[in-house]
Amino acid sequence: MFEARLIQGGLLKKLLESVKELVTDANFDCSESGIALQAMDNSHVALVSLLLRSEGFDPYRCDRGFSLGVNLNSLNKILKCAGNDDIITLRADDNSADSLSLSFENPNNDRIGEYELKLMDIDQEHLSIPETDYDATIIMPSAEFQRICRDLTVVSESVTIDVSKDTIKFTAEGELGSGNIKLKSTSSIDKPEESVNIELGQDVSLQFSLKYLMNFTKGTPLSEQVILCLSEKMPLLVEYKMDIGYIRYYLAPKIGD
């Protein structure tokens, strides 16, 4: 028996919006500790990894490991039927369950919608991603990161990210010209969510596809801050932290000959 009741059901709606562009089908791996998902995009260039801890649900019940294979577009369509303030409950009966039950309760508890989503067998490749000490870690407003990606897409398909002592610089060069945005590290005691924090072991310069970064910024509504972790010649980690877990995106760099 698997049952997970999420008071902030709107969070699940936002989460699906933030992964559906990148991944079509994925397994939700449910265990005592919570719900996890790891999936690569079709081109094997980007990966999304999300975790929802069991403590974030009320109640949460999972007797043993469940792997629920879901078409994310279908799940997203059903979740659009839930109100933003609804309480969402997910249920599956046993490991051979061929469907996932979803119920949507409104805050007054006088309207309850019930849906069934057919599950599928998904044979998914998982990558082992070790804990990494990154050369540079940047915490910045998520809306600012989204704006930078959107603005530089006008100029080029790629962006170079340079991090030095107290500055992060985003540069794009394309056929029409070039553009760059520099952000200096700032600290705001009153509004820490608006500050740019740079932790640097050594300078980093890496190039990435803006198309994927634009997809990652679909996670912006999940958190006011985004964390960027970079190491020379390593994939970029883009993380949005939530009260009940996180969503992490990994993107392989572009590297010259």
Binding site: A46, H126, L127, S128, G256, D257
Partner: peptide, 14 residues
């Protein structure tokens, strides 16, 4: 020339 790397070039499959 700049080439797009794949994730499997950095991480191993489980």
């Amino acid at each position: 020339m700049v080439g797009q790397m794949l994730l499997a070039e950095f991480y191993s499959f489980l």
